[in-house]
């Protein structure tokens, strides 16, 4: 039982990271109806920018300045990328089908992946932001030997929770959030009441960039920043299917479910059929889910004929 709980909690906590990536997808999808395949690449870019800037500053300045400087640099990069994307891709694809936009973001993913590796290098970089890495053992009284937790995962969960809170407040309580929700609801109507569409896109892509930075820093603390982080993006797709494309809570719950389900399946079913099922389990769950419940757990129910 202790082992089961340990696997479950480990899965839930790694699910938090999927949720963070999925959040980036959701905010962009909510505001512009674009499924941004490049979200994983933005995680890579943000991570690389942060790590390299921090390492550069760390040579001359004390630790906390290097962390702050690295974060500032990465934020600046993400905003610039958001601006470039808005300027050179999105505004030129207005009124195209969502499929064209999706394919354009696939192209974008390739561009961001490769250019960021050219600019910042393509090795594995360790992230050091002062989060303790020791494992924590809890519930020793309840189970024999207790339950082993990774403290990085715990921090990730706390930061993710804060991010979600901030995002919910931002979307529900601020004027900008209201404008973004209006754009998500109806582009033309929003424009007719005077909301500048390109500006909202810039905001939303910057927000997605910041979420990517958070995901990159947390994921990087666990496994280092490297190219394979891009495949995170693809793991976020089943999360979206499960949670619904337009729901922030859905992204969180979906991420947790996928993270836990995948680890449990790997440990308890995978050992029976050859292992490695972590690789596709999430997708097949999403596939089955799509058949039964196409709009996801928290998605808006669209009434249309297919």
């Amino acid at each position: 039982m202790g082992f089961f709980i340990e696997v479950l909690i480990g899965g839930l906590l790694s699910g938090v990271l999927y949720s963070l990536v999925a959040l980036g997808f959701v905010v962009i999808f909510k505001a512009s109806g674009v499924l941004n395949f490049a979200q994983g690449s933005m995680v890579l870019l943000a991570g690389l920018a942060f790590v390299r800037a921090q390492a550069f500053l760390g040579e001359t300045f004390p630790f906390w300045i290097s962390v702050a400087g690295g974060l500032a640099f990465a934020v600046a990069i993400m905003v610039i990328v958001a601006w470039l994307v808005e300027k050179f891709v999105l505004t030129r694809l207005i009124n195209q089908s969502s499929l064209s936009l999706f394919m354009a973001t696939i192209g974008l993913a390739f561009v961001i992946d490769e250019l960021s590796q050219i600019a910042f290098g393509s090795e594995v970089y360790a992230v050091k932001i002062g989060i303790p890495r020791e494992p924590i053992i809890v519930l020793t009284g309840l189970f024999d030997g207790g339950v082993l937790l990774n403290s990085v995962d715990l921090w990730a969960a706390i930061i993710a929770a804060c991010l979600v809170l901030i995002l919910v407040v931002f979307f529900q309580k601020t004027g900008t959030g209201l404008a973004l929700r209006a754009v998500a609801d109806d582009h033309a109507a929003a424009q007719s009441v005077g909301i500048p569409i390109p500006w909202t896109w810039l905001i939303i892509w910057s927000v997605a960039g910041l979420i990517a930075l958070a995901a990159a820093v947390l994921w990087g603390t666990k496994v280092g920043i490297q190219y394979s982080i891009v495949f995170l993006a693809m793991k976020a797709l089943p999360v979206l299917i499960l949670g619904g494309f337009t729901s922030i809570p859905g992204a969180i719950v979906g991420g947790l479910l996928i993270g836990a389900g995948e680890k449990l399946a790997e440990v308890f079913i995978g050992s029976m059929i050859g292992g490695g099922i972590e690789y596709w389990f999430a997708y097949v769950v999403a596939l089955i889910f799509l058949m039964i419940w196409p709009q996801g757990l928290f998605g808006e129910r669209l009434i249309e004929r297919i």
């Binding site: 499924l35 999706f102 797709l237 292992g275 490695g276 099922i277 690789y279 596939l287 799509l290 297919i306």
Partner: peptide, 27 residues
């Protein structure tokens, strides 16, 4: 699934096919 879903959702099911068969032929 294309009978129930379309567009971007379908992209995910074909991605599922990709990862599933990668695994199947490897393992």
């Amino acid at each position: 699934p294309s009978l129930r879903i379309k567009g971007l959702y379908l992209a995910v099911t074909t991605l599922a096919a990709q990862f599933f068969f990668d695994w199947l032929f490897l393992r």
